[in-house]
Amino acid sequence: MARILIVDDSPTEIHVLKTMLEKHGFETFSAETGEKGVEATVAEKPDLVLMDIVMPGMNGFQATRQISSNDATRDIPVIIVTTKDQETDRVWGLRQGAKDYLTKPVDEKMLIEKINALLAG
């Protein structure tokens, strides 16, 4: 069973994503800040990270860059899940090392398909 880290400062968003993922058999855990997300990724080595962008302190772009540039975590795929729907944000997110970019509200079927495709390699 794949373990997915949800990094988001909104308890509501965490709950929504957790519910979707657990319904499809994924194990989830969460972090409320970019800093805690990076720490949890290093410590727990999840199979995949769902990363919000707009958070206090370290934002999701910065956290994604740290995860994708760290030798210990660079192979863990990050999908950015955010309300920021501008093409420039999407391009920037992918440049930071994210493997995919989805805007909220997330389409459950699309999210699960993207996760499964990344986990399949």
Rank of each mutant, 00 (worst) to 15 (best):
G57Y: 04
I115T: 08
E44V: 09
P105F: 09
F26W: 10
L102S: 03
P105K: 04
E44L: 13
T82V: 05
G97F: 08
L50K: 09
I4E: 06
V81S: 08
E27H: 06
L50D: 06
T82W: 08
T33S: 15
T82L: 06
T19K: 09
K104E: 02
D85V: 01
E87V: 12
G60T: 04
I115Y: 01
R65Y: 15
A117W: 02
P46K: 11
P46S: 04
M20L: 07
I14P: 11
L118N: 08
F26H: 09
Q66G: 02
T88R: 13
D89G: 04
G60Y: 10
A63P: 03
V42A: 10
V16M: 07
D8T: 12
D85W: 07
F29S: 03
A2M: 12
T83F: 09
N116E: 13
H15W: 07
M1S: 15
M20S: 01
L102M: 14
E39H: 05
D71W: 14
A63S: 13
D8F: 12
R95E: 15
I6C: 05
K84F: 08
M110C: 00
S30Q: 09
R74F: 04
A120D: 12
D9E: 14
S68K: 15
V54H: 12
T103V: 10
A2W: 10
L48S: 02
M51P: 09
L118A: 10
K109G: 13
F26R: 05
T41S: 11
E39V: 15
D9Q: 12
M55C: 07
K45R: 14
Y101M: 05
A120I: 03
D100E: 08
G60D: 02
F61H: 13
T83N: 14
T12Y: 02
R65T: 00
E35N: 01
S10Y: 01
D8Q: 10
I14R: 09
V106F: 02
T19V: 07
W92M: 10
L119F: 10
S69P: 02
I4K: 04
W92V: 05
I14E: 06
I115G: 01
R95N: 15
G37H: 14
K36T: 03
D75E: 12
V54P: 00
V38R: 03
D89Q: 06
Q62C: 01
V54D: 08
P105N: 00
V81T: 08
R3K: 15
K114P: 01
M1I: 12
T64M: 03
L94K: 12
R65F: 14
P56W: 12
K99R: 15
Q62S: 05
F29N: 00
A98C: 07
T28E: 02
Q86G: 02
M20D: 05
L17V: 08
A43R: 10
A40T: 05
N116S: 05
P77M: 10
V49R: 13
L17A: 05
A63D: 07
L118D: 00
K45M: 07
E39W: 06
K18N: 15
G93I: 05
D89A: 07
L50I: 03
L48E: 06
L118M: 03
Y101K: 00
A72Q: 13
H24P: 11
S30A: 14
